[in-house]
């Protein structure tokens, strides 16, 4: 093989250090260059994705404020951890809230949902952001896998009455995914809890100061 193998270790050491330094420097330069090149695009992409995930439940034409920056955190009875509430407004008039909440009542672990509630207290749309339910059973809560999650649109606490916000396997008003009663029920109750919270707090929700810049978004990821 053509690797040179000098017998004298002393000059080898210096040479080795030099080679290490040069290659390290080259690597650092390359990385700095690529970082400069991509930094802005990556930030933009991250923003775009966060917004796109919110826009699953609220079309972009429905609001014109900076949705991503108009939020606060709240504790909602029945749900685990702190929920992030985004507020959509059109020319300053409240349109809807988008609640990013987590329920721990799923069949295997937490389910994270995004729930849009109109000013009137009506559900606009619901999507599942994250879950670990059994494939083929509980994962039908995802919009990509079934229509089930769309049944909540335009429903509110009066329609059906609060007590009937349950799966029909438990004498409630909503369809149940077959063989996934626990999962279905967890989602239905999470929506109900958000609606109840909204009803109790609606006078203050749109008046609260936004927490943008407080670093709450990071804190949210760390919760259980």
């Amino acid at each position: 093989m053509n690797t040179s193998q000098p017998n004298n270790p002393k000059p080898g050491l210096v040479k080795n250090l030099l080679v290490l330094a040069v290659i390290g420097l080259l690597a650092a330069l390359t990385l700095t260059g690529v970082h400069q090149l991509t930094e802005q695009r990556i930030v933009d992409e991250t923003q775009r994705r966060a917004l796109a995930s919110l826009q699953q439940v609220l079309p972009p034409e429905a609001y014109n404020n900076a949705l991503i920056d108009d939020y606060f955190t709240a504790r909602i009875a029945g749900l685990s951890g702190a929920a992030t509430i985004y507020r959509a407004r059109f020319d300053g008039t409240p349109v809807a809230i988008l609640a990013d909440v987590v329920t721990d009542q799923g069949y295997s672990g937490d389910i994270r949902l995004l729930i849009a509630v109109d000013v009137s207290g009506q559900v606009r749309s619901v999507r599942i952001l994250d879950h670990r339910e059994t494939p083929g059973l509980g994962d039908k809560i995802e919009r990509e896998r079934s229509e089930w999650i769309t049944q909540f649109a335009k429903r509110s606490l009066g329609d059906p009455p609060r007590a009937a916000w349950e799966s029909d396997q438990r004498q409630g008003a909503f369809d149940t995914l077959s063989s996934a009663t626990i999962t279905s029920s967890a989602v239905i109750r999470a929506i109900r809890d958000v609606l109840v919270w909204y009803q109790n707090e609606q006078d203050e929700i749109y008046a609260l100061r936004s927490e943008a810049g407080d670093g709450q978004i990071e804190a949210k990821d760390g919760r259980e």
Binding site: N2, T3, S4, Q5, G12, K15, N16, V19, L20, I23, G24, A27, T30, L31, V34, H35, L37, T38, R41, I42, E45
Partner: peptide
């Protein structure tokens, strides 16, 4: 390869590979 002594070979490989992967990762993210 002609500058790589056996003592520093592995660190250099790791350095090169890690940098390249980071570059590819950043490019893909962007």
């Amino acid at each position: 390869r002609r500058w790589l002594q056996p003592e520093i070979r592995i660190p250099i490989f790791v350095l090169i590979i890690a940098s390249l992967v980071t570059v590819v990762d950043l490019l893909m993210q962007a």
